[in-house]
Computed example of a mutant assay.
Amino acid sequence: MTMKRSMMSTALVLTAGVALASGAMAADKVKVGMLSTLSGPGAGLGVDIRDGFNLALKHSGGKFGGLPVELVIADDQQNPEVAKQTSDRLIKRDRVDLMTGIVFSNIMLAVGPSVFESKTPYISANAGPSQYAGDQCNPYFFNVAWQNDNLHEAVGKTVLDKGFKKVVLLAPNYPAGKDALVGFKRFYKGDKAVVADEIYTKLGQLDYAAELAQVRAAKPDAMYIFLPGGMGINFIKQFVGAGLSKDITLFGPGFSADEDVIKAVGEPMLGMFNSSHWAHDMDNAANKKFVADFQKDYGRLPSLYASQGYDAALLMDAAVRDVKGKIEDKPALLKALKAAKFNSVRGSFKFNNNQYPVQDYYLRIIGKDAQGRVTNKTLGKIFENHADAYAASCKMK
């Protein structure tokens, strides 16, 4: 099967809301292109974004701002070239009005230029590369999740505050992995903060025997990992299986210690610390409804990926509402997106000048809840109204 045919076979078109007569004008509906990772080791992340988005669409009655939504879903196969070709198809053939869904930053960087050139607003439900936060910021790029460094910065501060003096860092060798360790070291520094080793692995790697030998040789008192999806699942199992958890405290960002990983690993994750801007135990009305309905519809606790997919849809809904359905008015639509007048599941939400969030970050620990379920519990706030380090380089007004 050719790549082109394979790509077409992975695209799924879902139409939400009232069926439309043929020949309807674009303003009679909102067409959303969701390009995400729906196969391979990172598939669980894309699935959660998709499911969170679809739940928000269900809550809005299949409409954004009163206009029926047509959602076109495609798999990027975690391949930048496939992603770029599929994105071009969504823009040129399907003529989508808005785009979302990309998980990995290398995919986002490959797709971004053609999306921005087409003047299609992109609402990121995950990928937050430093390039688009800084001097390559773009009026058509909005990130409803976080900037890549932020969750890692929060853990770096936590590890320092807890007095750990010797740390090994590990991340995949791609843009978000590099941003991760830069972010961690931005706040883990000083005379009593030693990075004993900094290890980069292949993206998608699942066997960590060599890396675990390096960790054992370094003899750290703490370890920080950024390994989303299947990478984190395999590493944590191998880390505990090698007996390293007896002497080394394991830390990660929320997406290396979230419900998708916990479900696959289970009790070996007990006691692992992680940072997040969202948690399923956050006490606000929007989050309680989201968590309860996600469990009801999908039979599992939502991850932060699902929460971000949900918020991406809420932002789109609010923007279409605020332009009174006139989505062809791009300046007005961009202004409405930046205003972000929606009730986020994480509480208050606002964009910085670079259209990345300014938000709070929290410390979580994996334990057992009242039902004996292994899950995250929020311990407290690490950062309040935290902005990324690149916004000053963004020249957008």
Score class of each variant (00 low, 15 high):
residue 6 S to H: 15
residue 17 G to I: 12
residue 17 G to S: 08
residue 32 V to P: 00
residue 34 M to G: 02
residue 37 T to E: 06
residue 46 G to S: 02
residue 50 R to Q: 06
residue 52 G to T: 06
residue 53 F to W: 08
residue 59 H to C: 07
residue 81 E to N: 10
residue 95 R to S: 15
residue 96 V to Y: 08
residue 97 D to Y: 02
residue 98 L to H: 07
residue 101 G to M: 01
residue 102 I to S: 08
residue 103 V to F: 03
residue 104 F to E: 11
residue 104 F to A: 15
residue 105 S to K: 00
residue 120 T to Q: 03
residue 126 N to M: 14
residue 128 G to T: 00
residue 131 Q to S: 09
residue 137 C to A: 12
residue 146 W to H: 07
residue 153 E to G: 05
residue 157 K to Q: 12
residue 161 D to W: 04
residue 166 K to F: 11
residue 169 L to E: 01
residue 173 N to S: 09
residue 180 A to W: 00
residue 185 K to D: 11
residue 201 T to E: 07
residue 202 K to T: 11
residue 203 L to T: 06
residue 213 A to D: 13
residue 214 Q to N: 14
residue 216 R to E: 14
residue 221 D to K: 07
residue 224 Y to M: 01
residue 227 L to A: 11
residue 230 G to D: 12
residue 238 Q to K: 09
residue 240 V to R: 09
residue 242 A to F: 06
residue 243 G to H: 00
residue 249 T to Q: 15
residue 250 L to D: 10
residue 251 F to N: 05
residue 258 D to A: 02
residue 262 I to F: 06
residue 267 E to I: 04
residue 269 M to W: 10
residue 279 A to S: 15
residue 283 D to G: 14
residue 284 N to E: 09
residue 287 N to L: 06
residue 287 N to K: 02
residue 288 K to P: 12
residue 292 A to W: 07
residue 298 Y to T: 01
residue 301 L to G: 03
residue 301 L to E: 08
residue 301 L to T: 14
residue 302 P to A: 10
residue 307 S to M: 07
residue 309 G to A: 04
residue 322 D to S: 07
residue 323 V to P: 09
residue 331 P to S: 13
residue 338 K to M: 06
residue 353 N to V: 14
residue 358 V to F: 05
residue 369 D to Q: 11
residue 370 A to G: 15
residue 383 F to R: 09
residue 385 N to S: 13
residue 386 H to E: 11
residue 387 A to N: 07
residue 388 D to H: 10
residue 395 K to C: 12
residue 397 K to T: 10
